[in-house]
Design a protein around this nucleic acid. Structure first.
Ligand SMILES: [Zn+2]
Ligand SMILES: [Zn+2]
Ligand SMILES: [Zn+2]
Ligand SMILES: [Zn+2]
Lengths: 158, 158
DNA sequence: CTTGACCCCGGAGCGGCTCCAGGGTTTCCA
DNA sequence: TGGAAACCCTGGAGCCGCTCCGGGGTCAAG
């Protein structure tokens, strides 16, 4: 199987396949006389494994570790669970921040109805006022009744 | 105000401030005799504006466009709305895929209870079997009763 | 003999930082 | 007065997971 066949069989871009090889996820295949990569069935399965994990948004490093487990099936699987749990935690953390983001953006969006000049745009007003330290619609916490603290220590990811 | 003062006042890392300057988001400040950056109140407000937008996860390019509106308040604000709407759409799309991801990971996690060898680990079994083309717990769509098509054309982001 | 479909490689680019090396300046304290 | 600590400067590399590019080789069909 040449790289193009593997790409077609798995739906993975050729460049991505070569990238996985460079990254040490896909073992180096044999070569034809002309230097073309020659893949076996095992490569196809391994690539499918990788893509399945990527579809779960696992980082390549985690996939590397999972592949180690496939290669060493006598090891204890505790680390596998931890790995999935960590991934789940990442996803849930991101879900929480995106849910907050969604309502913040919706609140901001509600500040402007129809078309007018930017000078009178409720959205822009909000953003400028918030930069002055005033309360903003987007970062108002209904539960606590107070304005989120945007200044001060803050991570760069929302 | 020196860069460290600005950093302290806004909670933004010094390197990030310099990065925003390089990226054309923060105007170049004056300099002291020794070459140190000297910021004014206007810089602080502009940086706060940028961070507020970043807290809404807007890409720097969108923030640049918003800052253009601040500089040209006579323009029509339709593009501002569109910009927010696009951001909202991005967030909602990501939310949807993360929600799917969460249940997929949870289903996968449920395949392994207590500790055992990797060989007998339900999680690893699932992943390997799925790579063989068999159905997997994670990518089983309850609504359609069928297995997700993981092979074939697929975007690289989940 | 050319066209087109493949394949190879190394390197750059994306976003939004973050960190580093290698320097200069200022400030405080003994 | 000396020396350490705390600032500041610059340019460039590194992160992730690809994606694209340039410049070239290979091979069959028309
Ligand atoms: Zn408006
Ligand atoms: Zn806000
Ligand atoms: Zn297990
Ligand atoms: Zn699955």
């Amino acid at each position: 199987m040449r790289i193009g066949d593997l790409a077609k069989a798995t739906g993975v871009d050729i460049e991505t396949i070569r990238y996985y090889e460079k990254a040490g996820l896909l073992p180096e295949p044999g070569r034809e006389a002309n230097g073309y990569r020659a893949y076996q069935q095992a490569h196809l399965e391994r690539l499918a494994f990788i893509r399945h994990c990527r579809a779960l948004d696992m980082p390549l490093e985690s996939i590397r570790r999972l592949l180690d487990f496939v290669a060493h099936p006598e090891a204890e699987c505790g680390d596998i669970n931890r790995l999935i749990d960590e991934q789940l935690a990442r996803v849930q953390a991101r879900l929480n921040s995106l849910r907050a983001l969604e309502s913040q953006l919706a609140a901001l969006r509600a500040q402007c109805g129809e078309n007018h000049s930017a000078r009178e745009c409720g959205i822009l007003h909000e953003l400028v006022a918030a930069a002055h330290g005033e309360a903003c619609a987007c970062h108002f916490d209904a539960k606590s009744g107070s304005h989120y603290l945007l200044m001060g220590k803050q991570k760069n990811r929302p």
